[in-house]
């Protein structure tokens, strides 16, 4: 997926978390979910954390994604709870692996999807500037996001050219190294050229000056941020405490 799904929430979304909150939630969810204990009370902490992306998706009006996630996760959870004790042999291994993978990684992936698809590039940048990331990092990140759609466009056009000239998928089977070259070389040449032009253009708009950049994008912490953050923190604390006990 070379496209950058960086659309903001639809105007009628119920909430818009600060990007920093989303990253914080990601941190907690991925840490806890992956360490994956299901004994005892820790189980409930994980369930709460898994529910967070679900709730966020609903509130963000992405019901379809929320539904898919819920079904997937519920299936994996139940499989872990019951099926692994009722099956043997190869089927057992497959089920354990699959359900284990899904129940541990899918919440993180979904939280990641939520983060990327509901944060605009300018919001992301504003968040980084507030977190005092140096310019050496914020500028390349901004450029990177701006280039994803360009890479997609150029790539699509080159794809068409390859199809038209008859050097598409067919040649891959014969000689994968050459196919890789056909795919990448024109793309790199094109993107580098665009990049050079972009650099020139950015300089004429004053990028690189000594003044501190302002940012008109509005981000900030609100009630929702506090609510979700504390929920996640409590779940995490609960998790670790119940592990220790």
């Amino acid at each position: 997926m070379k496209e950058q799904p960086s659309q903001s929430l639809p105007a009628n979304a119920y909430l818009n978390l600060d990007p920093r909150t989303k990253l914080f939630l990601l941190l907690i969810i991925s840490t806890i979910m992956i360490s994956g204990e299901i004994r005892g009370m820790a189980l409930y902490a994980r369930l709460v954390l898994a529910a967070i992306p679900f709730v966020l998706l609903i509130l963000g009006r992405r019901a379809k994604a929320a539904a898919i996630y819920a079904i997937l996760f519920a299936a994996a959870w139940l499989a872990e709870a019951f099926l692994i004790y009722n099956t043997k042999g190869i089927a057992n291994i497959v089920i354990v692996m699959l359900s284990g993978l899904i129940s541990r990684f899918v919440p993180c992936v979904i939280m990641g999807y939520y983060t990327i698809s509901t944060t605009r590039v300018s919001e992301f940048l504003a968040a980084m500037e507030r977190m005092r990331f140096p310019r050496n990092i914020t500028i390349p990140i901004a450029v990177m996001f701006r280039f994803f759609p360009t890479i997609a466009e150029e790539s699509h056009s080159i794809d068409n050219a390859m199809k038209m000239r008859g050097i598409g998928a067919r040649s891959f089977v014969g000689n994968p190294a050459v196919a890789l070259e056909y795919r990448l070389v024109p793309l790199l040449m094109s993107v580098v050229k665009i990049g050079d032009e972009l650099s020139a253009s950015a300089l004429t708009r004053g990028l690189g000056g000594p003044e501190k950049r302002t940012n008109v994008c509005k981000i900030g912490f609100g009630a929702w941020d506090a609510a979700f953050a504390s929920l996640a923190v409590s779940a995490a604390v609960f998790y670790f405490v119940s592990l220790g006990g």
Binding site: Q4, S6, R120, V121, S122, A142, V143, F145, R146, P149, T150, I194, E197, L198, A200, S201, A202, T204, R205, G206, L207, G208, G209, E211, K212, R213, T214, N215, V216, C217
Partner: peptide, 28 residues
Amino acid sequence: GSVFQNPRSQFFNVDTTSEIAFGCENMG
């Protein structure tokens, strides 16, 4: 202020409003 030949390589941002603000932001 400079305007170039190829629109595809003039934009630093992905959304239009940010692009209009870009130069001013750079000036602080």
